[in-house]
């Protein structure tokens, strides 16, 4: 097994951890962190698989570099939205499921 493949397998584990965190954690800040872990896993898979047979593939590396910048921008926007929610509602979590859950989604 090459080192690249090992990175990709670790990336798959990170994707699963991030996905579970995104679904299970109610706090928005933790959801954003989980989303970043999920994204890091995807980057690790891309770069790892790109060099699984030894040589370094510049194409996935450039794609991941692009992805990292987009992930930073998306994270900053998500944090600004979470901050807005904190200012408006005083809470940092999404409304719980309940009778008025549909109204809260609109």
């Amino acid at each position: 097994m090459s080192v690249g493949l090992l990175y990709a397998l670790a990336g798959a584990a990170l994707v699963a951890i991030g996905l579970a965190g995104l679904l299970l954690l109610p706090q928005l800040l933790r959801k954003i962190l989980a989303f970043n872990i999920l994204g890091s896993g995807a980057f690790l898979i891309l770069v790892g698989l790109g060099q699984r047979d030894g040589g370094i593939d510049p194409v996935p590396q450039a794609m991941v570099l692009t992805g990292i910048v987009v992930a930073i921008a998306a994270t900053a926007l998500a944090l600004a939205l979470a901050r807005q929610l904190l200012d408006l509602s005083g809470r940092m979590r999404l409304p719980e499921d309940g009778p008025d859950a549909g109204a809260a989604d609109d």
Binding site: L5, A8, L9, A12, A13, V15, A16, L19, I45, L49
Partner: peptide
């Protein structure tokens, strides 16, 4: 999902 991804990569 992690296991399926890993198996697909191998």
């Amino acid at each position: 999902l992690a296991a399926a991804l890993g198996l697909a990569m191998l």
